[in-house]
């Protein structure tokens, strides 16, 4: 099947019910998207599917066909959110970080603290208690 990941066309050979998470991590060799639970609860696998945050562990490969997938690797490294996460200690162990950043991408410009808390309610961080993440996003 064909899909567009981070602006690049990719051809992968995966059964249609393969998890998008596995397609990205294994077939596309993009391991920046993480698996924390495989049940939609932790948000570590968050990617953008046509611009909307989704849990890649709950998306069949078939649904990514002809869609635009964006993963953490697609942000380059100099994205304001990435810089702010680095600066404000928002990444401790870092396993939730790619998913957090992807979920935060869906926020409107100049979000309020409440906007941030609601947008990230599907992303669990066990290290930070979230406050450093808020500081990063609000100042990005």
């Amino acid at each position: 099947m064909r899909l567009r990941v981070n602006g690049r066309e990719m051809e992968v050979d995966a059964p249609p019910m393969t998890r998008l998470l596995d397609v990205l991590r294994i077939h596309c060799e993009l391991p920046g998207t993480k698996e924390g639970c495989g049940e939609g609860e932790c948000g570590a696998c968050t990617v953008l599917l046509d611009g909307e945050p989704v849990c890649a562990c709950l998306v069949p490969a078939a649904h990514a066909e002809s869609a635009e997938v964006t993963t953490i690797e697609g942000l380059g490294g100099e994205h304001p959110l990435q810089r702010a996460f680095a600066e404000h200690g928002a990444a401790q162990c870092g396993i939730c970080t790619p998913g957090m950043i992807m979920a935060a991408l869906a926020l409107p410009p100049s979000p309020t603290l409440d906007d941030v808390r609601v947008a990230l309610a599907g992303n669990i961080c066990r290290c930070t208690g979230y406050h450093a993440i808020y500081r990063a996003i609000l100042r990005a």
């Binding site: 993009l30 391991p31 920046g32 998207t33 993480k34 698996e35 993963t71 953490i72 690797e73 942000l75 380059g76 490294g77 990435q82 810089r83 996460f85 680095a86 600066e87 200690g89 990444a91 870092g94 396993i95 970080t97 790619p98 950043i101």
Partner: peptide, 17 residues
């Protein structure tokens, strides 16, 4: 700056999986 920040925010940090 944290020594490990850049890898962690870009997704290039390598965890065992």
């Amino acid at each position: 700056p944290r020594k490990d920040a850049a890898e962690k925010v870009t997704g290039s940090a390598k965890y065992v999986d």
